[in-house]
Design a protein around this nucleic acid. Structure first.
Length: 883
RNA sequence: GCGCCCGUAGCUCAGUUGGUUAGAGUAUUACCUUGACAUGGUAGGGGUCACAAGUUCGAAUCUUGUCGGGCGCACCA
């Protein structure tokens, strides 16, 4: 007894120890298995600037559970980790740091030096998240770890770029982009956050040339009138139709612009009359394209106005607007000003107000790739779990817009386009050129922009496996692991990432980069709100691990992961599952002293005790359910199946039923019970290991001591273990025990006081089972003596009793029993049972039901009716004793 | 505005192609320091499956509508 383990499970010591042991043993490296197939995952690369949050923890848990499961099932598994350079996020972190420490911006430092600083910063801090992932227990092959700006991903990016460029699918064009005046770069739609901003609606008056008419134009941005190149009305608008083709005069600058008709204008909205500013508004840009309007840019890259707007030159938007307002007032051309709340785009990182600005950008035409990506899902070559997410995927890919791939940043893959300064030739090149391919001059420069971060992420399944470097591909076994098996990620990046990988990898290899995409929930707080810094409602996974252990957190996340959209996380749930871990720990503490007795192999089936047959049958059921559930990404089902089994079946019944045997004198029975307990517990460890790797490995080391559980085989379902008949008998037995306990509590019999019971049943097999189990009733319900008879036998006097559908339980009581209370109880039960019976009987007397319902359903209902009838008779008998 | 999803116990959620008396966890109530475990045990209470109509022998499940909530896209002159 003195070598017993601690009374509670201590996660901290187990976690560090076993992670190191797994790595040392190379458990996470691909190893040929009995399936003869591979199973590979790529981990969505977190930002290098990142810190582990609950979303990462969920991501890591589901992927780790999946890959550990497949590894144990005998697949040759590979899980590839990595980090993303995250262009803007990283650049602005380092820029802020330099600003704070040296009071310099990046332009003052210079591009080359700035990049050196970022790389240095990345080496120093960039791997914080890796250490955090290891705490979670992720079983990825760290030798495969890739950074999106490593040499191979850079080659991949350039190869893809050059091919698209040469096919004419990458082109340069003037386009209106989200311009962040603080970062001084275009940013993607995803990086724009819309916030409500209070402002005003200004109604301006535009004179119509050669007429007395005046157009009243509503705008939220009067300062942009200098860039107006048209006034638009709806072509069917009776009020203004006749003016189309005419000329309007812009207030203040008195420039003349055409009046055009465009469907975009909403007759009902505002004044029905719209100023068109293609240089500074997204919709106006589109209108301008349709009508070939000129584009006027009145803004500098820093957000101030340029000399195209002389009255407000050098001013920022806010001041400019006030200035314009007062000028318009002087001129009498501001008819109205009313408060208005608008959604205004802000830079996600900089929080600056985003200015729509026209500039030269690089675009990738994705129409053909998008078609292929759609086809891959429609044909079933790639499947979403849950399936509904394909709608989101299609929504974007069926109407793809050309993708703006250039960013005016320094941190990222520089666009591999070169301009010859001698002959003006422009070309794309996979390697850095030494001279111009056309005129051989070595006087050229590279495009200064870098590519959107998603451009390299889109090639991630290829580049992490060495593509396009042949040597690296051979080393990393590209052909064995591409395409990968499953992509696990959140729905927020279905089109940013999933769709782009499908397009880009599909384009380069002709096959989708993965067979399944499992979309997991978004982790929210317990009230369903998004976790955010501003709300301060974030839950730090590392805190939770410190408090409850990695396994408890993993189990909580897995138990909340199925086909749901949100996972509302309450730390109390983690605490609950911490308690479950402790329960398992203590179940082992119960078994531990008997391990020496236990044999390694189960005895032959014909020797199994009924309890053994039952628990092994139940174990087999749970193994089957877990296998199915994990294969379908139903981690919630897998968790609830094993939880139920361990808690209710194994601990509450099998262990309790084992005490009598293990404390008895029958050595053979003791040995067999110890053997089955050990066997069952080993199976539980295997079943749980993918979800809770640490505690199971820790207990396995005491159970086994030789092998690592991480490298064991998973438990498969085995039909010859299942035994429905025994399960049925056990369920009835459990009902009887619960029934006795129920009666005892109902009349306040103290737990220690022993009772004498009389059982009546007409089921001979069950009667025998009860007789065989009579000693267990003492342990489970403090029964000291009793009889089992048929229902024709005489009942005892002065008893409290209750009826099951198959058995009557009578407890004769010498002391006083509140007869009225007992009668009431029985009558209530009779009422309920009558209701149940009548509902069922109504079905049976309905001829159409009997004719139409499947035979087995009818049989079940008949059996149910019979049971209710039997119970009703018993209840009448019980009531009879009081009369 | 277009599209998608959801509404089941106080809370968080399961409920597969319609088929017994709708299930878990958590919270809650009563009793219990019993030799694995108080991070525990035993036994309870708690649901008109949002509402309405329809299809069906049978509806939480299918159809339509209403109400409520969420998300995506678009819009935000």
């Amino acid at each position: 007894m003195d070598n017993l383990i601690d009374k509670t499970y201590n996660p901290k010591t187990a976690e560090d120890k076993w992670y190191a042991a797994w790595e040392k043993a190379g458990c996470f490296k691909p190893k040929k298995g009995k399936q003869g197939k591979t199973f590979s995952l790529i981990m969505p690369p977190p930002n290098v600037t990142g810190k582990l949050h609950m979303g990462h923890a969920l991501d890591a848990t589901t992927q780790d559970a999946l890959i550990r499961f497949k590894r144990m099932k005998g697949f040759e598994t590979l899980w590839i980790p990595g980090t993303d350079h995250a262009g803007i996020a990283t650049q602005s972190v380092v820029e802020k740091l330099i600003q704070k420490e040296e009071k310099k911006n990046r332009h003052e430092i210079g591009r080359e030096e700035f990049l050196t600083r970022i790389w240095k910063w990345k080496e120093q801090y960039g791997n914080e998240i890796v250490a955090q992932q290891k705490k979670m227990g992720v079983s990825c092959d760290w030798d495969y770890s890739t950074f999106t700006m490593d040499e191979v991903p850079n080659k991949a990016v350039r190869k893809f770029f050059v091919r698209m460029f040469n096919e004419g699918l990458i082109y340069q064009s003037d386009y209106i982009v989200n311009w962040d005046p603080k970062l001084q770069s275009a940013i993607s739609d995803a990086e724009v956050e819309h916030k409500e901003v209070k402002g005003f609606f200004y109604h301006l008056l535009y004179k119509v040339k050669g007429s007395d008419e005046v157009l009243e134009v509503a705008t939220t941005r009067p300062e942009t009138i200098f860039a107006d190149t048209a006034v638009a009305v709806h072509p069917e608008d009776e009020r203004f139709k006749h003016l189309i083709g005419g000329t309007a005069i812009i207030p203040i600058c008195n420039r003349e612009v055409p009046i055009i008709g465009d469907e975009h204008v909403d007759i009902e909205k505002g004044t029905g009359c719209l100023k068109v500013t293609p240089g500074h508004d997204f919709n106006d840009f589109e209108i301008g394209k349709r009508h070939s309007l000129p584009i006027i840019n009145i803004m500098n890259k820093d957000g101030t106005f340029n000399n195209g707007a002389p009255e407000i030159e050098g001013l920022k938007v806010k001041d400019a607007r006030e200035r314009i307002e007062s000028i318009l007032n002087e001129l009498g051309e501001l008819k109205e000003k009313k408060p208005h709340v608008a959604q205004v785009g802000h830079g996600e990182r900089s929080d600056a107000i985003i200015e729509p600005l026209v500039s030269k950008q690089w675009f990738l035409n994705v129409s053909k790739m998008a078609e292929v990506a759609v086809e891959a899902v429609e044909s079933g070559a790639m499947t979403f779990y849950p399936k509904g997410w394909e709608n989101t995927y299609f929504a974007w890919l069926k109407e793809p817009k050309d993708w703006c791939i250039s960013r005016q940043l320094w941190w990222g893959h520089q666009i591999p386009v070169f301009y010859c300064l001698s002959c003006a030739h422009q070309w794309a090149s996979e390697s850095d050129p030494t001279d111009c391919p056309q005129c051989r001059a070595n006087n050229f420069r590279q495009d200064p922009d870098v590519l959107d971060t998603w451009f390299s992420s889109g090639l991630w399944p290829l580049s992490t496996l060495g593509w396009p470097d042949e040597k690296a591909m051979a080393e990393k076994r590209f052909n064995d692991f591409y395409p990968t098996a499953t992509l696990v990620t959140g729905f927020d990046i279905i089109f940013f990432w999933v769709a782009r990988m499908m397009m880009m990898c599909g384009e380069m290899t002709g096959q989708p980069p993965f067979k399944h995409v499992y979309i997991h929930a978004i982790v929210r707080d317990k009230q369903g709100r998004k976790m955010s810094k501003s709300l301060g409602n974030g839950i730090d996974p590392l805190d939770m691990i410190a408090q409850y252990g990695a396994d408890a957190m993993r189990f909580t996340l897995a138990a909340g992961s199925g086909y749901n959209r949100n996972l509302n996380l309450d730390p109390e749930r983690i605490e609950g599952y911490r308690n479950f871990m402790n329960k398992i720990w203590n179940a082992f503490r119960f078994i531990q002293p008997h391990l020496e007795l236990a044999a390694d192999e189960l005895p032959p089936k014909e020797k199994w005790h009924l309890h053994d047959r039952w628990i092994l049958s139940e174990l087999n059921t749970v193994a089957g359910r877990m296998n199915e559930a994990i294969d379908e990404y139903r981690f919630d089902d897998a968790c609830s199946a094993i939880y139920q089994f361990v808690y209710e079946k194994f601990c509450s019944w099998y262990i309790e039923l084992s005490k009598n045997i293990l404390n008895g004198n029958d050595e053979a029975a003791k040995r067999q019970r110890a053997t089955v307990l050990k066997y069952g517990f080993r199976q539980i460890m295997k079943l749980m290991h993918p979800i809770t790797p640490y505690i199971t490995e820790e207990l396995w080391s005491i159970l086994d001591g030789k092998t690592l559980l991480a490298s064991e085989s998973y438990v498969e379902s085995d039909a010859h273990l299942s035994d429905e008949r025994v399960a049925d008998l056990m369920n009835r037995f459990i009902e009887v025990v619960t029934g006795i306990r129920n009666i005892r509590q109902g009349v306040n019999i103290k737990p220690k006081d022993q009772v004498d019971i009389r059982l009546f049943t007409d089921d001979a097999k069950f009667a025998k089972f009860l007789y065989d189990s009579r000693h267990f009733l003492g342990d489970l319900a403090a029964v000291k003596s009793g009889t089992i008879r048929q229902k024709s036998a005489e009942r005892p006097k002065r008893s409290v009793s209750s009826a099951l559908t198959h058995t009557e339980i009578w407890i004769p009581l010498e002391g006083l029993v509140d007869i009225d209370e007992q009668v009431k109880k029985v009558q209530k039960d009779i009422e309920k049972t009558k209701d149940d019976y009548q509902r069922i009987e109504a079905k049976l007397s309905n001829a159409t039901f009997v004719d139409n319902a499947p035979e087995d359903v009818v049989l079940e209902v008949r059996e149910k009716a019979r049971q209710f009838q039997e119970k009703l008779q018993s209840l009448q008998t019980i009531l009879g004793q009081f009369q």
